[in-house]
Amino acid sequence: MYMSVAELVDAAKKTKKPIYELVIEQEMDTSHNTREEIWDAMGRNLDIMAAAVKKGAEGEGVFSKTGLTGGEAVKIKNYRSAKKTLSGDLMMQAVQNAVSTNEVNSSMGVICATPTAGSSGTLPGVIFTLKDRLDLTRDQMIQFLFTAGGFGMVLANNAGIAGATGGCQAEVGSASAMGAAAAVELAGGTPEQSAEALAMAISNLLGLVCDPVAGLVELPCVKRNAIGVGNALISADMALAGCTNKIPADEVVAAMDKVGKGLPSTLRETGLGGLAATPTGVRMKEKIFGKAVDAKA
């Protein structure tokens, strides 16, 4: 099993195989499933992602039971068609796709966790935007998910991917890094450039806290995926331009693990710090659960 970014990059260079191919081979080896079974399973994940991207931006959009989030993917869609966006249509399309997916998640719809549910909008945000931009085939989109997943396994096994242990950097940060690295490969970049994109993406979001209002995966989680997807595309572009992070990817991953462990528990998915502890955040919690819950906490 590939346990570091360096191992994955070295293997890709030595074998002259794309990273997605190495990840598929690794999966065949560990699961004893056939290549076709593995490929089809990833195809089903892609279909679930496509459905969520679409669902959140249709009609009035989707809304969570609490009313804290929902309908904003539709607002972004309407804004894109009516106005000249500041950051460009591609960027806002990516943001729309990410927000749409996470609004579906908050409304208890069906999503594919990538790597987590709270960060489930970031990768679809990247891939369904690049689909139009680079005119991708379904096969290429599935390849993207294998590459992203391979890098994600390294992150998960070395630093963790839970907000409760590592903060949001471990969730949206990881998703963003996975998307950046896989986007580079799709665009024809080298394995080293994928590693640089991953390193830059994590470095940019290092220290991001997990502070969900009322403990719900809504505020600020939905919009954190907007920065996740933006950061992924920016980091991928910087890597493709030849920019480097200077601090190697595996050292950045180790730093993320240390930073996560150093975060106080109030900023690790307890809903007790950050935005959750603002007067408005506390009021929202009381309105949803009543004061009794707050008193117990």
């Binding site: 994940n45 998640n105 908050s106 719809g109 594919c112 966790a113 990538t114 549910a117 997943g149």
Partner: peptide
């Protein structure tokens, strides 16, 4: 990592 398919949140 890419999965599971699940009901949110």
């Amino acid at each position: 990592i890419i999965g599971p398919i699940m009901i949110g949140p």
